[in-house]
Amino acid sequence: MFLKPKGLMQITKSSLPWLLVFCFIFFICGIFLALLFSPDDYKQGEIVRIMYIHVPTAWMSLAIYMLIALLSFAFLVWNNVICGVLARAASSVGVVFAAVCLITGSIWGKGTWGTWWVWDARLTSMLILFFSYVGYLMLWNFFSDEARAMKSASVFAIFSAINVPIVKFSVNLWSTLHQPASILRAGGVAIDNSMLIPLIAMFIFFIFLFLVLWVLNSHKLIDTYKIKKEIVLRF
């Protein structure tokens, strides 16, 4: 049922209003906590607040690409076209999150390092992830045959997903200007609750924002995307 267009549309349409409500709630809470509850950094000052956008969009960029790779794998193994469509719907959101992550990171870097960009391991691997998103989307539009485009993009997503753990562990594997992990680390969380709570609230907001946009994109693709009827019948 979940992997059939009719069942998927029914479930997501009924859940969309709730997703919008939770998205709005966590946005208000996250912004309030980030601007008023969270203190400025004793070294970085007010610019540290950009992390409440930068960090969650970085996490989401990695998670969405892994989701795309898993859906692509499911499509290739079980030949379920809806998995490929869902991966395509997620990719257009992921590429925006990756772009926001890079832009906010550059602004943050200019304020703390004095430069917009450095070719260190974390930044470079994140840029590669952004181009992976772009490459995935380009493959969808490169072939006139929809089935071939879906298969090519799926194979690309699976193999290029190797960059996701590289992005995550780049600060541990190589010397880098980027600060090491502050939350998912062996020594425990290294960030005060006054910053951790707003960060988690904003992360949850971005999760719900992704779900809302993913649902809307999925509906659009199922209804209007250039997938031939004979392919749809194989769902």
Rank of each mutant, 00 (worst) to 15 (best):
G30A: 12
V21R: 02
I28D: 09
S14V: 13
F26K: 06
K43V: 05
P17K: 05
F32H: 07
L19V: 12
W18P: 03
S14K: 15
C23I: 10
V48G: 04
G30D: 12
D40Q: 00
W18H: 07
L33Y: 05
P39H: 03
F32A: 15
G30Q: 06
D41H: 04
I53E: 06
S14P: 14
I50A: 04
F27Y: 04
W18F: 15
I28L: 14
E46Y: 09
L33M: 13
I28T: 13
V21L: 11
I47N: 04
S15C: 03
L20M: 15
S14R: 15
I53S: 00
Y42S: 13
F37C: 11
L35V: 13
F24P: 11
I47A: 00
L33I: 02
I47F: 00
G30L: 10
P39D: 06
V21D: 07
C29M: 12
F22W: 03
L36N: 07
G30S: 13
I53G: 07
D40L: 04
L16R: 08
Y42Q: 09
A34C: 04
I25N: 09
S38W: 08
L16C: 03
V48L: 00
D41Y: 00
W18M: 08
A34D: 00
L33C: 08
D40Y: 05
P17F: 00
I28H: 11
A34N: 01
L20T: 14
D41F: 02
Y42C: 08
C29H: 01
S38M: 10
A34L: 03
K43S: 12
I50N: 11
F27P: 07
P39C: 01
I47P: 03
D40C: 00
Y52Q: 08
S15E: 15
Y52V: 05
D41M: 01
Q44L: 09
S14G: 14
I28C: 13
F24Y: 08
R49A: 02
A34S: 15
I31W: 02
L16F: 06
K43M: 07
V21S: 13
Q44I: 14
I31Y: 10
I50E: 04
P17A: 01
F22N: 09
G45Q: 14
F37N: 12
F26D: 11
P39L: 02
P39V: 05
C23E: 06
A34P: 03
V21W: 14
F27N: 03
V21T: 08
P39E: 06
V48S: 06
W18A: 10
I25R: 13
G45F: 01
L20E: 14
L16S: 05
I50M: 09
I25D: 05
D40K: 13
D40T: 01
L19S: 11
C23V: 11
F26S: 12
F24C: 15
I53D: 01
W18K: 04
P39I: 00
